[in-house]
Design a protein around this nucleic acid. Structure first.
Lengths: 107, 107
DNA sequence: CTCATAGATAACTCACTGGTTATTAATTGA
DNA sequence: TCAATTAATAACCAGTGAGTTATCTATGAG
């Protein structure tokens, strides 16, 4: 599970790769060719990035003829959302603890 | 702003650095020495990671004598939360669009 | 069958980054 | 004043990873 978070953060840390994922979120299913246009890098680079995204579970691929269509898998973001809310919960618990402490001192 | 997301993802992508940040979230303010214990890397490595976290706005430092106390700045996670919810919103809008389309086809 | 196109893979290069040890600066205490 | 401690910085090294070009595989069209 921790490993999963690691893979997610690492995968999304690269701006080119994150941009590809964002386009898939915004525009839905796209082919490699369509993604390559405007990606700012070569087609092999795009393919490699898509491979990494797929490995992390962030995209799905669908082969149709000689084209490959990729689509975003939003569910894969769950560990990231969980992580942030966990960090936030620690923060809030800290306030709660402080609150408890102050109340206890009040008595 | 995009730059900010970039820095956040990059900063949190390293497991050692993320672990330091997590400890600060869980345990509150800690000195460099305390953080070094159990970090699994040398003190200079810890200092460097803290420097990167500070650069990203994820931690604050407070000097007291010859010790430096670091604390987490949860607010700095906002761009990350915003990003995920933005991606999710695209996802939901897609469903809405599909819904609209189906309704329109129904007529 | 042949040629073109789409995408993946191979092989390689180069820059960046995370780690190390050694050193320095600053503060505390004897 | 001198020694010890805390953290930061310097200098260096090695692994990783993102990019490239060239090539291969597979599908589609004529």
């Amino acid at each position: 599970m921790r490993n999963n978070q690691d893979e997610l953060f690492k995968t999304l840390a690269d701006p080119t790769r994150r941009a590809l994922f964002e386009r898939l979120c915004r525009e839905g299913e796209l082919t490699v060719g369509a993604l390559t246009v405007g990606a700012g890098v070569s087609q092999p680079a795009v393919s490699k990035h898509l491979g990494v995204l797929k490995q992390a579970g962030l995209v799905l691929d669908r082969h149709q003829g000689r084209q490959t269509h990729y689509s975003a898998q939003l569910g894969a973001l769950a560990p990231l959302i969980d992580w942030t809310s966990e960090m936030t919960s620690f923060w809030e618990r800290r306030f709660d603890d402080l609150d408890d402490l102050l109340k206890r001192m009040d008595q």
